[in-house]
């Protein structure tokens, strides 16, 4: 029972990006995907979500190749929180979150009791209930980001992918979001792959971290094992120091250049 990324190579017509990435995420765990800009993190999420077919290798969930599933079946398995960009302006928050129920709806999109319940729950979990009737164009960037999270939660999938979900969030909502994701993974066995740039958030909330650089997997394992000063200095081409808190979490700080 796990997400297996089996020797995946992938890219775009113009260039190869991922080179033989091999990685397993046990069910119910949170994997933080780290790496410098352009390393291929978003590309890997595309392969995991089924929208980009790998050139080589496979992505398997519970032994099944997710690229062989029909779109609807896949959408009941994997939900994605993309980076908030150019959302349709006139949709209300509730409408947008309801679209997360698409994999369970007919072609006409008529929603039932269970769908409304799931939407209400997702809105509550993301603190969006008071904004339910607002059109998306009148939300802040962080609120839009939370709408996309709520939509993914309404999808009620066992696997959740997030691409830089905390970028637009304030400090409070950053820890709210990460704690929510962690609680869901603990309580419901949700398996999570999230791209984050904040190494300390990764260390704090992820069960495992993986570092991508130039499309290759540099290291994967527990935060304490992977986040070493020597490795981070090499990958990010910036001198860093790694301290340890009283609770034993690594804390990464950029040293003066």
């Amino acid at each position: 029972m796990s997400l297996e990324i089996v020797h995946v190579s992938a890219g775009y017509p113009s260039q190869q990006v991922l080179d033989d990435v091999h990685l397993t995420v046990p069910k119910g765990q949170i994997l933080a995907l780290l790496g410098p800009n352009g390393a291929g993190k978003t590309t890997l999420l595309r392969v995991l979500s089924g929208t980009l077919a790998p050139w080589q290798g496979q992505v398997r969930w519970e032994g099944r190749d997710i690229h062989r599933l029909a779109p609807k079946a896949r959408a009941r398995l994997v939900a994605v929180v993309p980076q908030a960009r150019a959302l349709p302006p006139a949709f209300t928050v509730e409408q947008a979150v309801m679209l997360g129920r698409t994999p369970y709806l007919s072609w006409l999109g008529g929603a039932g009791q269970a769908d409304w319940k799931a939407v209400q729950r997702a809105l509550t979990q993301t603190d969006l209930l008071p904004l339910a009737a607002r059109p998306l164009q009148r939300l802040s960037g962080g609120e839009q980001q939370r709408v996309l999270l709520a939509r993914a939660l309404a999808q009620e999938t066992p696997l959740l992918l997030l691409d830089e979900p905390t970028t637009h969030l304030d400090l409070h909502h950053q820890s709210r979001l990460l704690a929510l994701v962690r609680d869901l993974s603990r309580a419901r066995g949700l398996t999570v792959v999230m791209v984050v740039h904040d190494l300390n958030q990764a260390a704090r909330y992820a069960d495992r971290v993986a570092i991508l650089d130039h499309g290759r997997l540099v290291a994967a394992g527990s935060p304490a094992a992977v986040l070493t000063a020597e490795r981070l200095t090499r990958v990010y081409r910036t001198p860093v120091e790694v301290l340890t808190t009283a609770q034993g979490w690594p804390v990464v700080v950029a040293a003066a250049e």
């Binding site: 595309r46 349709p88 679209l99």
Partner: peptide, 23 residues
């Protein structure tokens, strides 16, 4: 008249529409 819901989903772009289970 049958495509209303699909059109709604498509407003989020092709990639997100796929995430939501629409071909």
């Amino acid at each position: 008249l049958l495509s209303g819901h699909a059109l709604n989903v498509l407003q989020f772009g092709e990639e997100q529409a796929q995430h939501l289970g629409l071909n």
